[in-house]
Each structure stands twice: as C-alpha cells, then as structure tokens.
C-alpha cells in the first residue's frame, strides 16, 4: 500500500466570478521513501493541491470530492482537531518558500522549530531545544544561531532553517512547495543538495512542487505534470524526461535547458494557461496544442497507461506523440 494515495481529488475556490477549478479529479500515489515531483506552470493548481492535502485551504476553498488516504487512513473525513494533532507536521510536514515570510519575523528561528516539536511530542523543552539544534546542524546551520531572528539569516539559510523545521517531527511525508524559487542559482544548488542528502539519509517520502523541471530531475523518482488543475502525464522521472508523451510535457521538457546538448534553443510552450473558472471544453490543453483536432475540443481524454512502468498520459494523440517527433519545432 502506498504511503499517500490521492484519488479523484477535487478542490474548487469560490470567488465572485465563479468557481475556480484549481484541482480537478487528480489522482496519484506516493510510495514510502519515494519522491514525487509535481510540475506545471504557475496557476495550474499544484500549490493548491499541496495545501489541500494538508487541509490548509483558505475559507473560500472547498473540497468537493475525492479521497486522500495516508496508510489507508482517510484524511479528509478526520475532524479538524484530530487532523491537526495526528497528521500535521507529525506525519506530513511542509517546506515553504523561504524567500517569503514563512518564518515569523518576531520569533527566534530556533524557537519556531522547538514550537513544532513541543506541539506534537511529549518531550521536555530542553530536549526539544537539543533536537532543534541538531536539526539546524544537519542542514548546515551552526546551532549557535539558534537564537537568531529570521531577519538575521540570509535567504539560503532561511530556506535551510525551514527545511530543518519541516523535519522536526520525523514526518513520513514532506511536501516541498517551490523550495528553491527566488534563491539565486548557487544557493539553489546548495539547498537542493541538502534536500537530496536528507532524503537519502532519512529515507523521506516527498512531494515536491515546482515549476522548474530541473529540480525534479535532480531529486524525484516520479513526476506528475499538471495542467489546468489536472494531471496530464504521470510516470517515472527518467521515463517522462526521456520520452514525454503529452504535448504539454514535451513542451516543458524541451523548454528545460539541457546544458549537455550543444545548441538547443531555449523554448517555452506558447500561449497562456487557461482561466480556471471556465476551462476549455474537451482537453483543457487543446487551445495551445499543435496537434488538436475536433475530438480534442469536445471530448476529455482519459488517462491511459502506456508501455508499463505506470507511465500514463491523458491525450487523444498518444499514437502521434509516442512516435517521438518533436512537435514543438516551428
């Protein structure tokens, strides 16, 4: 049994202009010790999915259907209080984007870690402090900076402190939401290495959300490509990179600069992500897809498994894309 099982999850935001279908019938699984990367343009619903799993939705976000199970336990039907105590941070924790204000500016960094430990575990404060120091040390921050305030940390240090905080209660699953965005390239590399090391050392299961495919390539086993609230392609990282089957994934993969390749022009998928209040009929990608035909405009493609290894794709044109032609060449 998978550690985290998400099935047909549906989460809409209610707004004045109508319902925003941010997460629409999404299903995936994360096995113990594995890392799943979720990639997509901003606004495709990937962050909404993260906060749906942790049930941190704003008041206008509503889960309209589907299941989220952890070791078979139904997370959506738990009471708020039980979920808070039993799941948040102790079983699922989250790495936020450090450049944002994820650390409270008026509390010492160390105490913010201690607070997480004390909330979920029955240990003495002293013990919690000791653990927090070790955690800081583990992510490469000197324990002497335990008493510093967030504003005294650099961007990379803040991000690493947040990682340390995420590990405070030995969670089974860590959700990382854009953990390297807004950091400069050198620091990005450091942070990624730290995540990678910890994952290996602690055998962490992880769900990594990013718009940057290279990050997933470095750290994840599986990858799910999200477009307009739906997962359009799902498979092992190597397979999806090597042989993307959905036109959108193909675009993303080819947009991903390959330093090894000699002179591949940096490209991106032309067009804009759709408005999620009234997404396009049929395949949501069809307005941007060079292969789209009438069927794509009217009929929503189901996800089909292609060639084993759980590689699945939701596209009517799999037979074309599987041929291995670069459809994005102008």
């Amino acid at each position: 049994m998978a550690l985290l099982e998400v099935k047909d999850l549906k989460m809409y935001y209610r707004t004045l202009r109508g319902q925003v279908k941010a997460v629409d019938c999404v299903s995936f699984e994360i096995e113990k010790g594995k890392a799943l990367g979720i990639a997509g343009e901003s606004g495709c619903g990937k962050s909404s999915m993260a906060i749906t799993v942790l049930r941190l939705l704003p008041s206008n976000g509503h889960i309209l259907g589907g299941e989220v199970r952890m070791d078979g336990l139904d997370l959506l039907s738990m009471s708020e209080e039980a979920f808070r105590k039993a799941i948040r941070w102790s079983r699922i924790s989250m790495i936020f984007q450090g450049a944002m204000n994820a650390l409270n500016p008026v509390h010492r960094v160390g105490n913010q870690i201690v607070e997480a430990i004390l909330t979920h575990e029955d240990v003495s404060r002293q013990e919690a402090v000791e653990r927090a120091r070790r955690l800081l040390d583990m992510v490469g921050i000197s324990p002497r900076r335990f008493n510093d305030y967030p504003h005294e940390f650099s961007g990379g240090m803040k991000q690493r402190a947040i990682i340390a905080m995420a590990l405070a209660c030995n969670p089974d699953l860590v959700i990382a939401d854009e953990p390297t965005t807004a950091l400069d390239v050198m620091v990005q590399a450091q942070v990624l290495r730290a995540i990678q090391d910890l994952r290996e050392k602690l055998a962490l299961s992880m769900m990594l959300i990013t718009h940057d495919l290279s990050v997933i390539a470095q750290t994840c086993d599986d990858v799910a490509i999200m477009y307009a609230g739906k997962i359009v392609e799902y498979g092992t990282a190597t397979e999806v990179y090597k042989k993307p089957l959905h036109p959108y994934s193909m675009g993303l993969v080819s947009a991903f600069p390959n330093i090894a390749a000699e002179k591949s022009p940096v490209r991106s998928v032309p067009g804009f992500p759709p408005n999620l209040v009234s997404p396009p009929e049929g395949c949501r990608f069809h307005p941007r897809c060079p292969l789209a035909d009438d069927k794509c405009k009217t009929e929503e493609p189901a996800s089909v498994e292609v060639g084993g290894n759980h590689h699945s794709v939701a596209c009517h044109k799999v037979d074309v894309t599987a041929g291995g032609i670069d459809i994005w060449v102008q």
């Binding site: 944002m100 204000n101 994820a102 409270n104 607070e115 997480a116």
Partner: peptide, 14 residues
C-alpha cells in the same frame, strides 16, 4: 494573511 500564519497552521499549532 501572512505566510508565517500558514506555516503555523501547517505545523499543527492550535
């Protein structure tokens, strides 16, 4: 509305 409030909620604080 700040991010650190979401962090705090995610941490499972009461």
């Amino acid at each position: 509305g700040q991010d650190y409030i979401i962090t705090a909620r995610a941490k499972g604080l009461p």
